[in-house]
């Protein structure tokens, strides 16, 4: 089955991904993503139901670490590199409301 991606889809996924697109960009991404989806659609020409999904090349399990404290980063250095900081905290614009 071929999936079609329309402009509303592009706008929706841009929103989920925290990107803002102009109308022209929506247009152009709709175009290119549709072409890519055609390539991806090749997967559906084969019956793959007999193949278990493989999400990772490794088959190992239980790679755990011991519960031991390791020195971390210097706060001053980290906050220095932050776009905005105040009182030893990272600072961000307000969370709720709109402009």
């Amino acid at each position: 089955m071929t999936y079609r991606i329309d402009q509303a889809d592009v706008a929706h996924i841009a929103k989920l991904a925290r990107l803002s697109l102009s109308d022209d960009e929506i247009d152009s991404y709709q175009n290119s993503l549709s072409r890519i989806l055609e390539v991806i659609d090749v997967m559906n020409s084969e019956d793959l139901s007999g193949f278990a999904p493989m999400d990772h090349p490794l088959e190992t399990v239980n790679l755990l670490r011991e519960d031991l404290v390791v020195p971390g980063l210097d706060r001053a250095e980290v906050l220095e590199a932050a776009p905005s900081a105040e009182d030893n905290y990272f600072r961000v614009p307000r969370i709720l409301g709109s402009s």
Binding site: L21, A82, P83, F90, V92, P93, R94, G97
Partner: peptide, 21 residues
């Protein structure tokens, strides 16, 4: 929020969108 580019925004969400865009 923590490093790299930040573009202005009135809310965190607007800031994130502007930055990533």
């Amino acid at each position: 929020v923590r490093y790299g580019l930040r573009e202005p925004g009135v809310t965190v969400e607007e800031m994130m969108i502007a930055t990533r865009t």
